[in-house]
């Protein structure tokens, strides 16, 4: 057989492509459930990490169900009924104008305190970056944050997913003294005050990406969260009422603290 004839070359290529395509799609289909499971569990893990609960990926489902008491979607300051945060594709939402955006929100409860966990998404230097930020009951204070990325430069921009970077956000303020939204900015060297954290040397574009991501993603939640933290909605399930009283007391204490400051 002449392996160099044109027809042989065509037939060989066609057969090869079919075989390879079959094998690869077989592998992709077979491994897909396991991969999706990993991604889902990692999301739970990251949500929990933002409220300082560190669990292994295997335990993340159980822990998620323990700590996360409510999952909501907020549009224009109102809860969208019958919509789960898991249905929301954040990558699409962040491109919409603020008042049309569906904002997923996870409400967590730990040691009797309520935290609001907000998913973030934005762009780094090479690809998307994302993360979770947890706000305390006063809506202003960051309780914890973590970030991840698809393809930032290792050792530089990729450092946003290290504890050394994201732990800087703990205790920072996203609201200014008057309660207006101010966000937290990642700055180049010499960060000071409650609205700034230090950036990564060599990773300026990724750092700026984090700044923009926070500003863009948090904006849609502020009105709703402020309303929620002071006035409790009346239609809460009965089993949550006790906790609501605790929350109310806490928020009163906080307003007193703020006044005395």
């Amino acid at each position: 057989m002449d392996t160099n004839s044109n027809s042989y070359t065509f037939i060989f290529s066609a057969v090869m492509v079919v075989i390879v395509a079959f094998l690869l799609s077989l592998a992709a289909t077979a491994l897909q459930p396991k991969q999706a499971e990993n991604v889902k569990r990692e999301n739970w893990q990251n949500i929990l990490k933002s409220i300082d609960v560190n669990v292994s990926r295997e335990d993340s489902e159980e822990a998620y169900n323990t700590y996360i008491v409510d999952e909501l979607v907020i549009r224009n300051g109102q809860v969208v009924e019958g919509m789960s945060p898991l249905e929301v594709n954040i990558a699409d939402e962040i491109r919409k104008p603020l008042d049309e955006r569906n904002n997923p929100l996870f409400v967590a409860e730990k040691d009797g305190k309520t935290y609001f966990v907000i998913p973030l998404r934005g762009g780094g230097l090479w690809g998307p970056i994302w993360g979770y930020i947890a706000l305390e009951q006063d809506v202003a204070t960051v309780y914890g944050a973590n970030f991840d990325h698809k393809s930032e430069t290792p050792g530089l921009g990729a450092e946003i997913n290290t504890a050394g970077f994201y732990n800087q956000f703990k205790g920072q303020q996203i609201l200014d003294g008057e309660g207006a939204f101010r966000s937290v900015a990642v700055v180049k060297g010499g960060a000071s005050g409650p609205h700034q954290v230090d950036g990564i040397s060599g990773g300026t574009i990724t750092s700026d990406g984090v700044t923009d991501m926070l500003k863009n993603c948090l904006a849609g939640y502020i009105d709703y969260l402020k309303g929620r933290s002071t006035v409790q909605p009346e239609t809460l399930p009965v089993d949550q009422i006790d906790e609501d009283i605790i929350e109310e007391v806490e928020s009163e204490e906080l307003t007193e603290e703020m006044a005395s400051n």
């Binding site: 392996t3 160099n4 390879v20 491994l31």
Partner: peptide, 29 residues
Amino acid sequence: NLIPQRVRIIVMLTVVASLVILVDQVLKA
């Protein structure tokens, strides 16, 4: 002995690429 000489580099690339995708999928899982 089956590879046509003129497309051998493409055939090699296909083999490497398929194996790499396999490795990637297995690692992800």
